[in-house]
Computed example of a mutant assay.
Amino acid sequence: MSEPRVRSVNIGRPLLQRVPKGRPTGIGKQPVDVITVADPGPKRVEDGSGVSGVEGDHIGDGRHHGGSDQAVYAFAREELDDWARALGRELPDGMFGENLTTSGLDVDASEVGDVWHVGAAVLEVRGPRVPCATFAERMGERGWVKRFAAHGRSGVYLQVNQPGEIRPGDPITVARSGSGLTVPLLLRAFLGDRDAARTAIDSGALSEHRRAELAERL
């Protein structure tokens, strides 16, 4: 692989699609010249309003997206290329709703707690993206949620440890955490794998509310 870099930075504007009905979504990300990231604070579960860690990025479902643990979403261009070949269609940067499209980085080899230095910002890997009906509607592919989940390479959500600007071409330097909690394993835990959930809880790498969420499922 080439040196890890940011290929594209992407922001979602409010967009109406069939799912979710009557509520704009920000999944339709488009490339921009620069993004500014900062810690958005916790999810606003009470009113469902979205809080992204990317300035100007719309989140329609604040109960399941946004907040500190899901401030920034990153996905590898190499994975997009693999899906493009599998689906027989072009997939532009931002198509999967990612804020950062990376190149030269095996995003899905990340472990929870890995720290990324990107541009002027410092980000920390917190977990996987769990596919939802809004994502399926955007893709328009039959059985998409199940297919994407089974593939197991979801990209990563990151929290913002140090705010700053990120631009295309910025290098990405990764400091490994050694937590042992890989993003694919945590995805399996959130999808109902009880053994994976126990491993994730025992790792000590999860935030308190994520650990409580998995414990409740068990």
Rank of each mutant, 00 (worst) to 15 (best):
F135N: 03
F135A: 04
P131R: 05
R198C: 12
L185T: 15
G94N: 02
L191C: 06
V130E: 10
R153Y: 01
P163Y: 09
D108T: 12
P92G: 00
A150L: 07
Y73G: 05
V160T: 11
S177N: 12
D193N: 14
Y73W: 11
G152K: 08
G127Q: 08
H151C: 04
L186W: 11
G67M: 04
D108V: 09
A136R: 07
D81N: 04
R89M: 00
L158M: 12
E165V: 10
G178W: 01
E78N: 05
L187R: 14
A205L: 04
E124W: 01
M139E: 09
R138P: 11
W144P: 05
A150T: 14
T182M: 05
A71G: 07
W144V: 02
P128K: 13
R188E: 13
R153W: 05
L105I: 04
V125H: 10
F148T: 06
L100W: 10
C132Y: 08
A149S: 14
G164V: 07
A76W: 06
D170F: 04
A133F: 09
G94M: 02
A71I: 11
V156T: 14
R176M: 03
D82P: 00
R153S: 02
D193W: 14
G119A: 06
T134Y: 02
E98S: 05
D106I: 12
S179K: 05
E90F: 00
V112F: 03
A149P: 11
R176I: 07
G97I: 07
G88R: 05
K146D: 15
A200Q: 04
I201A: 01
R142G: 07
D195G: 10
A150S: 13
R194G: 02
K146E: 15
V112K: 06
C132D: 09
A121L: 01
F190M: 11
G104K: 12
G143T: 13
E165M: 11
L87H: 00
G143F: 01
R85T: 10
A74I: 08
G119W: 10
R89I: 00
V122E: 15
T101K: 01
W83M: 00
N99E: 08
N99F: 02
R142D: 14
G192F: 00
D108R: 02
V118G: 06
D106P: 13
G180W: 06
S177K: 06
D82E: 15
I201L: 09
L123Y: 13
C132N: 13
V156A: 06
P163C: 05
Q159F: 07
G169K: 11
K146G: 11
A76Y: 06
D193L: 02
F190Q: 13
L87Y: 00
R153G: 04
Q162M: 10
V156P: 09
D69G: 09
G180Y: 03
R77C: 03
I201E: 04
E78M: 02
